[in-house]
Computed example of a mutant assay.
Amino acid sequence: MNIALILTTAIGPISIGLLCISIMSLVKEPNRQIINALAIAGAGAVYWSGGLGFYEFPLGIIMVYLAFKGLRNYKYLAAGWIVHTVYDILHHLYGQPIIPMVPTSSLGCAICDPVLAIWLYFGAPSIFEVLKRRRAA
Rank of each mutant, 00 (worst) to 15 (best):
T85K: 11
G12K: 07
S25N: 09
H92G: 04
S106E: 01
I35A: 07
A39R: 01
A45Y: 15
L38I: 11
L131Q: 07
I118K: 04
N36R: 01
I35Y: 08
L38N: 08
Y76H: 12
N73Q: 11
S25K: 09
I35G: 00
I3A: 13
P114K: 05
A117Q: 06
I98L: 14
Y94D: 07
A110R: 10
A117F: 08
R72P: 00
H84L: 11
V86A: 15
C112N: 05
C109E: 07
P58D: 14
G60W: 06
R32A: 08
R135M: 10
I118L: 15
V27S: 05
C20A: 08
M101N: 13
T85M: 13
G17D: 08
I34K: 14
V46Q: 10
L90P: 00
D88I: 04
I6D: 00
I3N: 12
G123W: 08
G53V: 10
A136P: 09
Y76Q: 03
P58L: 12
T85A: 11
P114N: 04
V86R: 15
A39T: 10
T104L: 14
W48L: 14
F128A: 01
G70F: 09
I35E: 01
S106R: 04
R134P: 03
F57T: 11
F128E: 02
I62G: 02
Y47M: 13
V46H: 07
T9R: 14
W119L: 03
L66Y: 02
P30K: 08
K132L: 09
A10G: 02
F54W: 15
Y47S: 09
I61L: 15
F54Y: 14
G51N: 06
Y65H: 00
